[in-house]
Design a binder for these strands. Structure first.
Ligand SMILES: [Mn+2]
Ligand SMILES: [Mn+2]
Ligand SMILES: [Zn+2]
Ligand SMILES: [Zn+2]
Lengths: 146, 146
DNA sequence: TAAGCTCTTTAGAAAGATTCTAAAGTATTG
DNA sequence: CAATACTTTAGAATCTTTCTAAAGAGCTTA
């Protein structure tokens, strides 16, 4: 288990610590977002969805703040962005290297742990470049036989 | 070499045939786009870029028509869409299964032929689903040593 | 070739996601 | 508490993509 993984719900004080640890102020909005994002296992979520969850939870927060914080969390390494759909961004609370199933039907992501899938025989990289990440998206849809 | 591959520049009459073959009318705009897309080897291109290339080539065409035709060509199997950047769509004239290098620096795509890269040990799919495609994006950036 | 039909193109409006601006609010430090 | 720096926010702006509705072009048939 890597240092950043956490399988049990996180207490509010821990969430504040986690925010402070990346040099951000634990505002009411930030704590609420951290709670929605990190309290209860890994999540893959869009800005709009997170916004509506926050409003549902009774937290008054603007969409601009959602975007600000998603980007700040991403820069801080608490989130990563997953590109699977050209029309919206997904943010992933699992920042360990891993891949994804993408359910085309409902726009949902599911983790594939790094060890469960191997990419091999990557050809020589173009000159002067290095790998910054490898993303594998297995796009799946409802199967019609069976 | 699969049937759809073509290594030599395509003549205008061939382009018309190709458009007719997928039950579309060979309009001036469509022929011009087909020429830009299919005349000279594989391409990875955005709508805006294709639009400006068409205008540069002296073809009066609206951006709506670019989008209409990119989608019609994609539906017809002459193009595929590659999702690598959450802010814009790329269209690929290579419709054979293959993967990509993505140069993060300049937003450029480069093919990795299917045979040059292997994805193995894909875990069991979620119940009732089948694979619709597998996309591997190797994101690369300028390397700072060397 | 003309008529009629269908498909295509287009300008401009609209939509949807994301970012920006600038002003008010809040956390932190001294 | 005061000063400072960071944060939030409404609303405007931006950007890409899609839609609308009307004019234009290709195709078929007579
Ligand atoms: Mn699309
Ligand atoms: Mn972004
Ligand atoms: Zn994930
Ligand atoms: Zn390609």
């Amino acid at each position: 288990m890597t240092p950043l993984e956490h399988k049990r719900p996180m207490k509010k004080a821990d969430l504040e610590d986690r925010i402070r640890a990346v040099d951000l102020r634990p505002t009411k909005q930030r704590i609420a977002l951290a709670e929605l994002l990190f309290s209860d296992g890994n999540r893959h979520i869009t800005a709009e969805k997170l916004h509506s969850e926050a409003l549902d939870a009774g937290v008054r927060i603007s969409l601009a703040t959602i975007y600000n914080n998603l980007h700040q969390f991403t820069t801080a390494g608490l989130l990563r962005e997953v590109v699977v759909d050209s029309s919206k961004s997904y943010f992933d609370t699992n920042v360990d290297p891993h891949h994804h199933f993408f359910h085309e039907q409902n726009g949902t992501l599911e983790d594939i742990h790094s060890g469960d899938l191997t990419v091999s025989n990557i050809p020589e990289l173009p000159d002067g470049t290095e790998i910054s990440s490898i993303d594998v998206i297995v796009r799946i849809s409802p199967d019609n036989n069976s």
